[in-house]
């Protein structure tokens, strides 16, 4: 197997003095998707925040291609990591097309916003109206379009199916499968075991601050 794209060793994170992540290890290779499940408050979203560099861990290290995250140039990091959370993170007064065009410029992507919106099933008639008028699911689909216009090869997805209907979930599964097939390393936080199975992700559970491999097919 190739060298790990993202490697986490002994990661620790605490809210006040309560450790929600303690001694967490994770290895993520190119062309691989790891799905993380866990109870509410288990620290899944905190893990994603630590991996994006938005939070500083209490202990441990996160390495991107063998380089500690703190040593990676922030500009370079933006072109390598793409994050979509359960909040759409869109400017509500901009249109779907404007949101994706702005994001593409920020991260230096090459994908066309219209291609991304096509892939996420946003109709041409809706693309130029402010996303404030979109349903929650349409906003989330637009947010997922960021993955298509981004040049990133590591995707960090925190419950990305929030608000999506069945069609939207299928589009999400197709998107992740396609990305992984093209060499993207994907970390997916989800509560939906069916979705995880459809993606074919390696399933791990966050329990007591550590990741535990789930299922026979997942054994490393």
């Amino acid at each position: 197997m190739s060298a790990p794209r993202l490697q986490v060793r002994g990661l620790a994170w605490a809210i006040d003095d309560r450790y929600v992540i303690r001694g967490l290890d994770l290895t993520l290779h190119a062309g691989e998707c790891v799905a993380v499940t866990g109870e509410n408050g288990a620290g899944k979203s905190s893990l994603i925040s630590l991996l994006t560099g938005a939070r500083t861990p209490r202990a441990g290290s996160v390495q991107l291609d063998g380089v500690p995250l703190d040593d990676v140039d922030p500009g370079h990091l933006a072109t390598r990591l793409a994050h979509v959370g359960h909040r759409p993170s869109l400017y509500l007064d901009l249109s779907a097309r404007e949101n994706l065009a702005l994001f593409r410029a920020l991260v230096g992507g090459h994908g066309r916003p219209d291609d991304a919106l096509d892939a996420m099933g946003i109709l041409p008639a809706d693309r130029d109206r402010p996303v404030r008028g979109f349903s929650r699911g349409m906003q989330q689909r637009t947010a997922l379009g960021r993955l298509i216009v981004s040049p990133a090869d590591v995707w960090l997805l925190d419950e990305p199916s929030t608000g999506l209907d069945e069609r939207g979930r299928s589009l999400l599964v197709d998107l992740v499968r396609s990305g992984v097939a093209h060499g993207v390393a994907c970390l997916l936080v989800s509560h939906d075991l069916t979705e995880i199975a459809r993606i074919g992700a390696r399933h791990m559970q966050l329990t007591r601050g550590r990741l535990v491999t789930q299922g026979a097919r997942d054994a490393e």
């Binding site: 994006t52 140039d73 500009g75 990091l77 933006a78 909040r87 993170s89 869109l90 400017y91 991260v107």
Partner: peptide, 15 residues
Amino acid sequence: ESGTLGICARSRAGA
């Protein structure tokens, strides 16, 4: 409010 602060602050040219 929209959760875009992190996206804008982590651009390819930094913050």
